[in-house]
């Protein structure tokens, strides 16, 4: 049973994104309207090149929308300077990348502590908090290992710990199961679904993987830079995965 709360953490209204392509501009998002509610795990699905990654980049404050408005936690991102956007990401967003992007020379605990360090905590104190999160995710025995000593599934857990450690209101996750076997992928999604159960947090997952559609509270389907439909009925979502 979903713990979805109606208040949207993320609101996108009429979001348009153009990229320069030589002398011309290429429109990759065509007026996206989307809400992601607190306590919700939303999947964004669609074929390659449909604009999923661009959309989450805008929602996370990495890219700026050409037109339209994005609000996260009630804060409008339009017009924020690069410095303020960086501060917004530091405070509000947790990231899980497809390639994990763990710093190879840091231990799992140090990697998971990076967002806290970026917010101004001492490495030692941040590492302690990160270890607690890693333990919660079953990674306690591996906290002192470097990424090269970990399996893909374990690295994904470290990446999830890193996204959770600073208790962000919004987590964006890009293809979390793309590099994982079925069991590891399911385990990772269970962790993300648990993370989304926090009533003050929303999780958006971009994926190609129909095996994980069943974890979604809602599912937004995209095509050619548009959200073509949003499914919120578990049965309809499950049907899509088959």
């Amino acid at each position: 049973m979903s713990a979805v709360v109606e208040a949207p953490i993320v609101q996108a209204r009429g979001v348009v994104k153009d990229f320069a392509a030589g002398d011309e501009s290429l429109r990759v998002l065509h007026g996206i309207d989307l809400d992601v509610r607190a306590g919700e795990l939303m999947l964004v699905v669609g074929p390659s090149g449909c604009g999923k990654t661009t959309l989450i980049s805008i929602l996370a404050g990495i890219l700026s929308a050409t037109e339209g408005e994005v609000r996260v936690g009630g804060r409008a991102l339009g017009g924020l300077s690069a410095r303020k956007l960086a501060a917004f990401r530091r405070e509000t967003v947790g990231f899980i990348f497809q390639q994990y992007n763990l710093l190879p020379s840091l231990t799992a605990a140090e990697n998971a502590a990076v967002p806290l360090v970026a917010r101004g905590e001492r490495l030692g104190a941040a590492e302690k908090k990160a270890r607690l999160v890693l333990e919660r995710l079953g990674m306690g025995p591996h906290a002192g290992k470097q990424p090269r000593q970990l399996s893909g599934g374990q690295m994904q857990r470290v990446a999830i710990a890193r996204a959770l450690v600073h208790d962000p209101a919004f987590i964006v996750c890009d293809e979390p199961t793309a590099a994982l076997d079925a069991a590891s992928g399911r385990a990772a999604m269970e962790l993300l679904r648990d993370a989304a159960r926090d009533p003050h947090r929303a999780v958006v997952v971009v994926t190609h993987d129909p095996r994980i559609y069943g974890f979604a509270d809602r599912l937004a389907e995209m095509e050619d830079g548009r959200v073509t439909r949003v499914l919120d009925e578990p049965a309809a979502i499950r049907a899509l995965s088959h």
């Binding site: 996370a60 990495i62 690069a82 410095r83 960086a86 501060a87 917004f88 990401r89 530091r90 405070e91 967003v93 990231f95 990348f97 992007n101 710093l103 190879p104 990076v114 967002p115 970026a118 917010r119």
Partner: peptide
């Protein structure tokens, strides 16, 4: 790429 990841996570230039 590591610096890119840090920037994405909000580490300033």
């Amino acid at each position: 790429r590591q610096f890119g990841a840090l920037k994405a996570m909000g580490v300033a230039n």
